[in-house]
Design a protein around this nucleic acid. Structure first.
Lengths: 200, 200
DNA sequence: TAATTCATTGAATTTATATTCAATATTATA
DNA sequence: TATAATATTGAATATAAATTCAATGAATTA
């Protein structure tokens, strides 16, 4: 209702938006509060009116990013291939609609690679391990020949690395993907699909 | 000859070795000179006897890493599939022999994702773009049906992202790969290989 | 062995950046 | 409109980390 409160919420959002992009592109340590302030066109001091500290701002973004990049655990699917195909499609659809999604993947990726974190952020990160989760689905599916043979964790790692790599490229060099269209990505599933299950 | 010169060279190497691991695991900004000094068991001040600055030390490592992780451009091969299979095999063989190789990939990966760099380091990085290079080979090979259809740069990106992802996992969580053995990785080629070229 | 050069340290110094704060302007409310 | 509350700024202040430096110890060489 109060114009002022709306205003405040909007400026908070603006800060978060600029911070997401900067944290994604430069990482936590190399992103200075001054950089964010400049991008949001406000004084450095004001940042501390909206956020208690750089760390708290980052934590809030990580929390948000964790939700945004988390793999859906429950989904209806006939077979595990459908499961992967389903969220692959949903994921890139999502990235098309929200340009910040690739940035969030980038931020979460940096954390996964060991970027310095508070204990609180470590907890958040530990709670989400796509590679491990998908590996279980793959292991189960291998029994029925849905997936190629080999260490399921390695297959899962390769699969997720590709997804992550494409997301990060979208964040860093979107011009690689012409005219704002998302890349065709259905074939990524073939990284884990066994050839004998090829339906083409 | 002089024991002292050898000694000096060894300590320099020790610093570089510890720095590679730390820069890989924490990134440039979060790795403190004090961390490296501690890992190498020497005083902070002494670091500046061996290296002019943190930046110069990093530059030297990046230069070295650029060589170590660069794709061989010239290779004899019958067809482009052999080319990829060849260096995939060579690459992981190399990583098995030299434990610092995964760390170097990690460092180069961080730079590729935009980690802050001096202009000099930027030059080094610009000179090496595996994704672009492989994309050309793939584009050429697609004409003859060696590779699957689709944007060659995207295929190349997925391929290299998987390789990079496995390397980084080797750097950060080597315990994922049991008993020091390198993972089986020949199948990675299937990310780009067309099904019709399947020789199995 | 004496003199010289180099290695090493720990204590300054400098610098960059996060955070705090007092002062001012703006908006809301009585 | 007058008062109170909030937003905003730019200038301190605090802090952490890189870099320099003077002093000391160890190795080399004449």
């Amino acid at each position: 209702m109060a114009t002022r409160d709306e205003q405040k919420e909007q400026r908070r959002e603006l800060i978060i938006d600029k911070a997401i992009e900067l944290f994604a592109k430069k990482g936590y340590a190399e992103t200075k509060i001054g950089d964010i302030a400049q991008a949001a066109d406000m004084s450095v001091g004001l940042m501390f009116h909206y956020f208690e500290s750089k760390e708290k701002l980052f934590e809030e973004i990580v929390q948000y990013g964790a939700k945004a990049t988390d793999t859906p655990r429950e989904m209806n699917f006939e077979n595990p291939l459908d499961y992967f195909e389903g969220f692959l499609k949903a994921l890139f659809q999502y990235a098309r609609e929200y340009p910040r999604v690739p940035y969030l993947f980038m931020i979460m990726g940096r954390l996964g690679r060991g970027e310095g974190v508070t204990p609180h952020i470590k907890e958040i990160i530990n709670g989400m391990n796509q590679v491990e989760q998908s590996a279980e689905v793959i292991a189960a599916g291998q029994e029925y020949g849905y997936f190629r043979e080999g260490d399921p964790r390695l297959l899962s790692l390769a699969f997720w690395s590709s997804v992550q790599g494409i997301m990060e490229r979208l964040a860093v060099s979107p011009e690689m993907f012409s005219s704002g269209r998302m890349p065709e990505t259905e074939w990524i599933i073939d990284i884990i699909r066994g050839r004998k299950n090829d339906q083409s």
